[in-house]
Design a protein around this nucleic acid. Structure first.
Length: 556
RNA sequence: UGGGCCGUCGACAAGCGGUAAGUCACAUGGUUUUGGUCCAUGCAUUCAGGGGUUCGAAUCCUCUCGGCCCAACCA
C-alpha cells in the first residue's frame, strides 16, 4: 500500500511551482488547528497531507495553533493536539508556533491598512452590520462610519486595544466592496473587542484578530509556501490574497481540498462534543468515536491511519469514504504485527471423556504465522476445556463446519475431538459437551490423513484467566445520521458496545500490558485498555465469510 | 446581483487530445491447523446529459441538469 504512486492536484501544483521556481523550489506547509477540541480522523487527513508533502518534497511543516478566539480555546486542547500529532508519527521540530505570538505584528499591520485608508473602525451594532451586509442576492450598504479620517480611525483603534470600549461597540473593518458578489469581501471584520482572558496572552489584549485577517499573516510571517486547507475556505481565498497584496508582504498560496467524510459516524466537532457532553459516549476518547484518541484506545495503529489517509486520496469533490476501507487498513497492519492468542468470548464447557483426570500437557503454538521471528509459546491442555458457544450447533446445517453431535473437529494445536453428547439444564439450555479425543492427532495432525472441516480455538478451564472484553461496533445504524430523518440520536447503534464479563483467555495473556494488541484467533484484533483491571477492547473483527453466509441465508 | 467550487465503477480515485490505472467492497476459484492471511480471476465499450470542434474527446468549446459552500464580532 505504501508503494503506490501518489498523484493529486496539489502535488501537480507544487511540481509546477518547482518547475517555474515560484517559491525557489521551497516547500513549507503548516498544520493550523484551533485549540478548541480534539483532533479526529478528518484532521488526520489534513495532517498526513501537510506533513506528508513537506516530507516528500524535502520541505518543512510547522505546527501552529490558530488561537485567535480566547472564548473557545483552552490549553488542554493544545496538549492533546500535540500528543495526537506525535502519536500519528509526525514531527514539527522546533517549529511550534502560536497565532497569539503574532498579535503585536498583526496589530501593526492593521495600522498600516488604516493609514493606507484600507481599513476603518466601524461603530455600528452587530445587528446593523449584519443587516447592512446585504444578502447573497443583493448588495450591502456602506457603513456611515466608512469614511472616517485616518487619524480618527487610528485613535479609535488604539482605544479599542487599550480596552476603553465595551465589547460590541466597535470593530475594525477592511474597506473593500460592499457590493461584492462574494459576501466575504463586503468590508470584512479584522478585529473585534473581546475582554476575555487568553490562555497564552492573558489580559494583555482587549481586541482579537478575525480568522481571515490573521491566517494569511501567520502564513506570510512563517514563509509558508503552500497553505493547505479545506474546501469551505475557497470563498475566503480572494480575501486571503487581498490582505497580503494590500500589505505588500510575502504571499503564500492557499490551496483547498475536500474534507473527509466517513459513513456510519460523524465528524462534526459540534455533534462530537454533544455526544460527549450528553453522556451518549464515555468521553472524547470513547473507542466508538472517530477522534484520534478514540481510535487509539480502540486499538488503531498510527500506521493504519496513515495508510488510510494515503488510500482515500486527495481531491476537491465532496465524498463519503466507506468505513470498510479504514477497517481494511487496520486489519492489514495488525495481521502482520499482532501475535495470535486464543480467547473464548462466550464459553461453553467441553469435557474430554477419554482424557485422564488430573493431567495436563503443554502444546506448542505459533505466535504469528505471518512472522516467524515472533516465535512460539506453549498452551496448557487438559480434560476440561472451553470452546466458543457459537462453534457448536445441535442441529447443524450443511454449511456449518464446526462442532455438532457426532462430528469431529480439530482443536487448534491440540487434538481432534468428536462430540459424543450434549448436557442441558432444566431449561433446555446447553451447558456442556461430552467429547472424546484421538491421542494420535496431537498437535492437530492426523497420521491417517483424515480431514476435518474446522479448527476451533479453545482454552483449558483450569488454566484460563478471566477478563472483560468489550466488543465495539459502528456508532450509528445509518450511513449518514445527520441527513437522516429526525434526530441523529435516534440512529445511535444500541449494540455499538457489548461488554462481556465472563471471557476465558489463555494464561499467557495474564501479563498483557496496556496498549498491547493481539489477534484473538478467529475473533478479531483486540488491545489492552487503559484500566486497572484486565480489559480488552475489540479493534475490529476478522473478515468472516461464515458470518457473511449466515447473513445471506437470513435474507432469503 | 448573486458568486465560487464540484460531477469518472457500489465507495474512494488516477487520468491533463491518442482510445478508462489502482484501492476498498462484491463475486468465483486455489492454498491453508484461523470460514483469517495470501494468490488468481471477474467487476465502467464508458466518464451527469445534449450539442459542437477534431482523423481521434473523460480530457477543448457550448448549453442543460444535479450536488456543496458563502449573508458568525467562529475557524
Amino acid at each position: 500500500m505504501e508503494h503506490f504512486e501518489k498523484s493529486n492536484f496539489i502535488r501537480d501544483i507544487i511540481d509546477e511551482h518547482n518547475k517555474t521556481g515560484k517559491f525557489g523550489g521551497r516547500v513549507h506547509t503548516r498544520f493550523p488547528p484551533e485549540p478548541n477540541g480534539f483532533l479526529h480522523i478528518g484532521h488526520a487527513k489534513a495532517i498526513c497531507l501537510s506533513f506528508g508533502i513537506a516530507k516528500d518534497y524535502d520541505g518543512l511543516c510547522n505546527l501552529r495553533f490558530d488561537d485567535t478566539n480566547p472564548v473557545k480555546e483552552d490549553e488542554k486542547f493544545v496538549n492533546s493536539i500535540q500528543k495526537d500529532i506525535k502519536w500519528l508519527g509526525f514531527d514539527w521540530g522546533e517549529r511550534l508556533f502560536f497565532a497569539s505570538d503574532y498579535f503585536g505584528k498583526m496589530y501593526d499591520y492593521a495600522i498600516q491598512l488604516i493609514k493606507a485608508k484600507k481599513a476603518y473602525v466601524d461603530s455600528q451594532t452587530s445587528e446593523e452590520i449584519r443587516k447592512n451586509r446585504g444578502t447573497v442576492k443583493s448588495a450591502g450598504i456602506e457603513s456611515p462610519f466608512r469614511n472616517r479620517l485616518v487619524l480618527e480611525n487610528l485613535e479609535l483603534f488604539e482605544k479599542m486595544k487599550n480596552g476603553e470600549f465595551a465589547e460590541g461597540t466597535h470593530v475594525l473593518r477592511a474597506k473593500i466592496d460592499m457590493s461584492s458578489p462574494n459576501m466575504l469581501m463586503r468590508d470584512p471584520l479584522m478585529y473585534r473587542i473581546k475582554k476575555e482572558k487568553h490562555h497564552r496572552t492573558g489580559d494583555k489584549w482587549s481586541i482579537y484578530p478575525m480568522y481571515d485577517f490573521a491566517h494569511c499573516l501567520e502564513d506570510s510571517m512563517e514563509g509558508i509556501t503552500h497553505s493547505l486547507c479545506s474546501i469551505e475556505f475557497e470563498n475566503n481565498r480572494p480575501l486571503y490574497d487581498w490582505f497580503l497584496d494590500n500589505l505588500q508582504i510575502y504571499h503564500s498560496q492557499q490551496i483547498e481540498f475536500a474534507r473527509l467524510n466517513l459513513n456510519y459516524t460523524v465528524m462534526s466537532k459540534r455533534i462530537l462534543s454533544q455526544l460527549v457532553e450528553d453522556g451518549l459516549v464515555s468521553g472524547w476518547d470513547d473507542p466508538r468515536l472517530p477522534t484520534i484518541s478514540g481510535l487509539r484506545r480502540r486499538g488503531y495503529t498510527p500506521k493504519s491511519i496513515r495508510d488510510f489517509c494515503d488510500a482515500i486520496g486527495m481531491a476537491k469533490r465532496e465524498s463519503v469514504v466507506d468505513i470498510s476501507l479504514l477497517e481494511y487498513t487496520i486489519r492489514h497492519d495488525l495481521n502482520v504485527r499482532a501475535e495470535r492468542r486464543m480467547a473464548v468470548l462466550n464459553p461453553l464447557k467441553v469435557i474430554i471423556d477419554n482424557y485422564p483426570e488430573n493431567q495436563f500437557e503443554l502444546l506448542d503454538a505459533v505466535n504469528n504465522p505471518e512472522d516467524e521471528s515472533a516465535g512460539k509459546r506453549q498452551i496448557p491442555f487438559s480434560k476440561v476445556l472451553y470452546i466458543e458457544r457459537e462453534d457448536f450447533m445441535e442441529d447443524a446445517p450443511k454449511k456449518f463446519f464446526r462442532l455438532a453431535p457426532g462430528r469431529e473437529v480439530r482443536l487448534r494445536y491440540a487434538y481432534f475431538i468428536k462430540c459424543e453428547s450434549v448436557v442441558k439444564d432444566e431449561n433446555g439450555e446447553i451447558i456442556a459437551l461430552h467429547c472424546t479425543y484421538d491421542s494420535a492427532t496431537k498437535g492437530g495432525k492426523s497420521p491417517d490423513g483424515r480431514k476435518v472441516k474446522a479448527t476451533l480455538h479453545w482454552v483449558s478451564a483450569q488454566h484460563a484467566i478471566d477478563a472483560e472484553v468489550r466488543l465495539y461496533d459502528r456508532l450509528f445504524t445509518v450511513e449518514n445520521p445527520l441527513s437522516a430523518d429526525g434526530d441523529y440520536r435516534d440512529y445511535i447503534n444500541p449494540n455499538s458496545v457489548e461488554i462481556l464479563q465472563n471471557c476465558k483467555l489463555e494464561p499467557s495473556l495474564q501479563n498483557a500490558k496496556i496498549g498491547e494488541f493481539y489477534q484473538f484467533e478467529r475473533k478479531g484484533y483486540f488491545c489492552v485498555d487503559d484500566e486497572k483491571r484486565l480489559i480488552f477492547n475489540r479493534t475490529v473483527t476478522l473478515r468472516d465469510s461464515w458470518a457473511k453466509l449466515q447473513k445471506k441465508g437470513n435474507k432469503k
